[in-house]
């Protein structure tokens, strides 16, 4: 049990543009270990949804199995949630999205859930460019089954058990880029400044948005020999830069330093601003993103921040040309062709 949630709220706490207070975005009491990175990710999701003025009940939270996959119970309590089976969140999210394209789909998974048992489903949901935000709370281990190495554990990294991992690590951002994700980012549960705007931008993205969040497991993998510990990530993170999402209706007031600002205009006219760090990266190029990830890997650092986005993204429904609006709302009159059509069908079988 991590902490008792205080019900006290400062009277001056401002509601957002929809009139929701931040509490409306919170969920049940967390049962994760105190200090678990996953709880900070949940807090960032609450903050981002609040700031982005999202109606909580218009979000569907879907997860697999693991400590990470439990977290949807701890945020957005007014949203429906689905804690499915291990590694299969992508397919459940696909079906849910097919049924109703007008909701926001938030998938939460772990590195075991996505990079091992569910690696196939992870690859394929990228290919479909399903309109959803897919977050992996990546601690480089299997938290819930007591700390075994996962497929994202770096070579040489050792958890509490003290044995260095000999196997190649899967980089989920590189995989997502390869498989067709149209928004790819990496962040750190300890860096809310970076993570919150990334979530906000990803929620707006009309296609498959993937965020790999390094999220330390304090109980099994926060050792001095681990590359997914708080200290290691803090020391070795190199950011692509901070981002800011400006909805279309808002005036751009900030001054940007020339040469250090990259603008990406979204389909709805909103603009994502990237204030570039000292990183060679064109966020609209997959190749550039792959190269940047690899370059940092070879230098022993972890590249975080927005890595890639495709503003021309066409999502699954556009690709299969399904009707605007939720399929689930169609009734008999729209769906059932009736006996007259059936007479003709019968006749064709005579």
């Amino acid at each position: 049990m991590s902490y008792a949630k205080s019900t006290f709220r400062h009277p001056a706490l401002q509601p957002n543009a929809l009139g929701y207070s931040k509490r409306d975005y919170e969920g049940g009491l967390s049962t994760l270990c105190a200090g678990c990175g996953h709880d900070s990710v949940g807090a960032a999701i609450v903050q981002a949804c609040f700031e982005a003025n999202i109606e909580p009940h218009k979000v569907a939270k879907i997860s697999g199995i693991g400590c990470s996959s439990k977290t949807p119970a701890y945020f957005l309590g007014k949203s429906h949630g689905f804690n499915s089976v291990h590694g299969r969140m992508p397919s459940v999210a696909t079906g849910a999205n097919m049924a109703n394209r007008d909701m926001i789909y938030l998938g939460v998974s772990g590195d075991g859930d996505s990079a091992s048992i569910g690696f196939g489903q992870f690859a394929h949901v990228n290919r479909r460019n399903l309109n959803m935000l897919y977050m992996v709370e990546n601690n480089g281990c299997y938290g819930l089954t007591k700390g075994q190495d996962s497929a994202t554990t770096d070579v040489g990294s050792a958890s509490k058990k003290g044995v260095a991992n000999p196997f190649t690590a899967i980089d989920l951002c590189a995989t997502a880029l390869e498989m067709g994700a149209t928004f790819v980012a990496r962040s750190f549960s300890g860096d809310k400044e970076q993570l919150v705007p990334l979530i906000k931008a990803a929620l707006r993205h009309p296609g498959f948005a993937f965020i790999d969040v390094l999220s330390p497991c304090v109980t099994f993998n926060n050792t001095a020999t681990s590359t997914k510990s708080y200290d290691y990530v803090r020391e070795h993170a190199a950011a692509t830069g901070a981002i800011d999402v400006i909805p279309m209706k808002e005036e751009i007031t900030t001054d940007y330093q020339p040469g250090h600002n990259h603008e990406v205009t979204l389909h709805d006219g909103s603009v994502v601003h990237l204030y570039k760090g000292d990183v060679e990266l064109d966020v609209t190029s997959r190749d550039s993103a792959q190269a940047a990830i690899r370059r940092h890997q070879s230098e022993g650092s972890v590249l975080t921040g927005l890595l890639y986005m495709d503003p021309q993204s066409r999502d699954f429904h556009q690709m299969v040309n399904s009707i605007k609006g939720p399929l689930r709302d169609l009734g008999e009159s729209a769906l059932c062709p009736g006996q007259t059509a059936l007479d003709a069908i019968n006749a064709s079988f005579r």
Binding site: A60, I62, F82, S84, R88, P90, S91, V92, A93, T94, G95, A96, N97, M98, A99, N100, M103, G120, Q121, A123, H124, R128, F316, H317, V320, N321, S322, I323, P326, L327, R328, L330, A334, L335
Partner: peptide
Amino acid sequence: KKFAIAQAEDELSAMGIVIGASWNGA
């Protein structure tokens, strides 16, 4: 189209799609 078909990557996924869609009211 007033329908959507996904050829999934395997039968696990096919069933996941059915469950997700039914859960969501289709």
